[in-house]
Nucleic acid binder design. Structure first.
Length: 288
DNA sequence: GGCCAGGCCTCGC
DNA sequence: GCGAGGCATGGC
């Protein structure tokens, strides 16, 4: 039997456009209302919305089950996560409703680590620019799948060329001036140190999967340029530790304004990070 | 042109 | 242990 060159799935609680705007990932782009494109695992993927909660993905079925299903966190029941929200918490209830369809991606640890090191004290558009420059600098060019994106259900890609996120050994070849040239500023030193930690074996990103939350956190903040916030983002978005609750300037304002200065994460021992993402997205995309 | 950005490090107390 | 200051650069 011939495998189709794309995959369709009916998926509840999945909104690619919202995920693209959610601020957890920096290599997703909205093409139009029903098309999104992204780079991950060294590949280009386009998602087309077909209506009735059904989506087309520009990959083979085998790759969808092998890579993307897990990446999109499709085996988690987000409806029950939303149902678990304290009904008396009106802010979170509104936030979850506004953010319906956002999932926490299971991103690659190295990409997540470097991206969030870059993220500190920068706006999301600025992070995106900086990450993109880093990918171009290392120039691991992606071969687009043999698919005609002009044809339905897909559409033309936004760009001619795409680049994978570099591997640690790629970054290890770069000089200080190379990394500085992407606009990394004072984070250049942090990126070089993290790369060195990984290439030397002091930090083994694969081994970190095995660690408990506490041990993983300790390992991450032992790295130069990684503090509490960045470590929690790496844990949440790179290691699927959905109990983590990163607090940045936005979350800090939200907690101050709506929860008297501290949010009780113990109500959501396994899903506080998901709640955090709902709040973050809600606050940044509404003007109330 | 000024202000803020998905913060962290160092220093002084 | 904790608060203040400094930090490179981009986007609006």
């Amino acid at each position: 039997m011939i495998e189709h060159s794309f995959t369709t799935r009916k998926i509840d609680c999945f909104n690619p456009n919202r995920i693209a705007l959610s601020g957890q990932c920096f290599r997703w782009s909205i093409i139009d209302d029903t098309h999104v494109e992204l780079i991950a695992f060294g590949e280009y993927l386009q998602i087309a919305y077909l209506g009735d909660s059904t989506f087309a993905f520009s990959c083979y079925e085998s790759d969808f089950s092998r890579i993307w299903e897990d990446y999109f966190d499709l085996n988690r029941d987000y409806i029950s996560v939303i149902d678990s929200i304290d009904p008396e918490d009106s802010y979170l209830t509104s936030a979850s409703s506004f953010s319906y369809g956002i999932r926490i991606l299971k991103q690659e640890p190295f990409e997540t680590m470097i991206s969030y090191i870059i993220s500190q004290r920068r706006s999301i558009p600025s992070i995106t620019t900086c990450v993109e420059r880093l990918c171009r600098l290392c120039a691991r060019k992606i071969i687009l799948p043999a698919l005609c994106f002009e044809a339905s259900p897909f559409t033309a890609s936004l760009h001619e060329e795409y680049y994978a996120f570099p591997e640690a050994k790629d970054l290890n070849k770069l000089t200080f001036d190379d990394i500085s040239s992407i606009g990394a500023g004072y984070r250049t030193d942090y990126i070089m140190n993290a790369t060195k930690d990984i290439c030397s074996g002091r930090i083994d990103l694969t081994y970190l999967y095995e660690l408990s939350d506490d041990k993983l956190y300790e390992a991450l903040i032992s790295m130069r340029g990684i503090g509490a916030k960045v470590a929690n983002c790496i844990m949440l978005f790179g290691y699927s530790r959905t109990s983590r609750f990163p607090i940045d300037v936005w979350m800090s304002r939200i907690v101050e304004k709506n929860y008297g200065g501290s949010f009780d994460t113990s109500k959501y021992p396994d899903t506080a990070g998901i709640m955090q993402q709902f709040m973050f997205f809600y606050e940044r995309n509404t003007f109330r």
